[in-house]
Simulated assay, not measured.
Amino acid sequence: MTLLTAQVATLVTDIDDVNIEFSSGASTVLKVVIATILFGIALDIKVSDFTAVLRRPFPILVGIVAQFLLLPALTLLLTIALDVRGSIALGMILVACCPPGNVSNILTHRARGDVALSVSMTAISNLLTIVMLPVNFAFWAGLSPAGDDLLRDVDLDPVKTFLEIALVIGLPFIAGVTINRLWPRVAHRAHRVVGPVSFVLLLLIIVLAFIGNWDIFTNYITLVLLAVFVQHLMALGLGYGVARGTGLPSKSRKAMTFEVSVRNTGLGLVLVFAYFDGLGGMALVAAWWGLYDILAGLVVAELWKRRTADVPEQVAV
């Protein structure tokens, strides 16, 4: 074994014992920021976005299956294929179980995709996440050969997790939709401010967390780079593949691609610090994914915008 191989092996062994430092005050701020982001998303969501399921059930059903079933299942297989350590495997599975963020709507718009479908899928997915995330994560993480031992040491009470997610996602989401319903002008103006500001604050928190744990970041980030890259590429391919395979038109394929590949990893970070004490591999995967999928998504959207002719299409049924 070479010296380099020995060093890498040491790092791989240690990452499951590493914890990212994050004070209780910073954790509370993170929860408030995530709640504000969801509130900002909901301010732009109308009741009609939910009833769109009745008008276009098929593409939304395809998206739900891809996000809540196929993505976690394929992620589990990917963690086994890459033979990652337990904390990294749990981080990848947690990311796969997180809902999409409003960035998916922005990327769909930039790529000239079906924004209406994207918004409806974001609304439905975030609503379902309140119940599905704790159940989904517990199920797929429990099947992980690498992460199962770590999961046994964690008090991941589904009821407590549900209440945590309901507080961070459910209440602000319902509040935003209600305000949009009762005072649409106020909601429209507030959305233009709340969304960008909360998003910038989230990026700032992630960057400060990296700076505050710089030694951990520099020592272990190489272990998650490949995992995040491959998982994100898989998510992009899954979104596009299921849309194309089910016969959805080009604009709907764009929406589906970003809905499946863009994850609200800020919520994932909240859960990592709330239940896993900032477990190293999980926190690094969630934090790095949050930065990487925005950059990669912008590149994909720009390429799609340039290479795909914006021609009239039939609306998916």
Rank of each mutant, 00 (worst) to 15 (best):
V103C: 07
V115A: 09
V95G: 02
A116I: 09
G91C: 12
A111N: 05
C98S: 14
T79C: 09
H109L: 14
P72T: 11
G101S: 14
D83G: 14
L69G: 08
D114W: 01
N105M: 11
A73I: 13
A111G: 06
C97I: 07
G101E: 04
L78T: 07
N105Q: 11
L77M: 13
T79I: 08
L78K: 11
L117D: 02
P72E: 12
D83E: 15
C97E: 05
R112N: 14
I106G: 03
I80P: 01
L77N: 03
L76A: 09
A73W: 13
L90W: 02
N105I: 08
V115P: 02
I88E: 02
I93L: 15
L82A: 07
L117E: 03
C97P: 00
P100Y: 09
Q67I: 11
L117C: 06
G91I: 11
H109Q: 14
D83F: 08
M92R: 10
I88R: 06
T108E: 04
H109W: 12
L76D: 02
P72A: 12
F68N: 10
P72Y: 06
L90P: 00
L82W: 07
I93W: 02
A89W: 05
V84Y: 00
L90N: 09
A73G: 07
F68P: 00
S104A: 15
T108A: 10
D114S: 11
L117N: 04
R112C: 10
I80F: 01
A111F: 00
L70V: 15
L78V: 08
D114M: 09
L90C: 08
A96E: 01
G91F: 03
L107D: 04
L76R: 08
V84D: 00
A116P: 02
L94Q: 03
L107S: 09
P72S: 12
L69Q: 04
G113M: 05
I106P: 00
T108K: 09
T75F: 03
F68V: 12
R85G: 13
C98Y: 01
I80Y: 03
I88P: 00
A96N: 08
S87N: 06
R112G: 03
L94V: 10
P100A: 15
L77F: 12
I80R: 14
H109V: 09
L77H: 05
D114Q: 10
C98T: 13
V103E: 08
I88K: 07
P99D: 11
G101F: 03
F68R: 09
L107Q: 09
V103D: 07
F68L: 15
L76W: 12
P99S: 14
A111Y: 00
L69I: 15
P72M: 11
A73E: 06
L82P: 01
G101V: 03
L90K: 08
A111Q: 05
L74K: 09
L71E: 04
A81F: 10
G101N: 07
L74M: 14
A89S: 15
L74D: 02
V95L: 15
L117K: 07
L107P: 01
A96Y: 00
L90A: 14
N105W: 01
A81N: 05
N102F: 13
C97G: 08
L76P: 08
P72D: 12
L82D: 04
L117F: 04
R112S: 13
H109N: 14
P100I: 13
D114P: 02
F68K: 10
V115Y: 06
V84M: 07
V95Y: 02
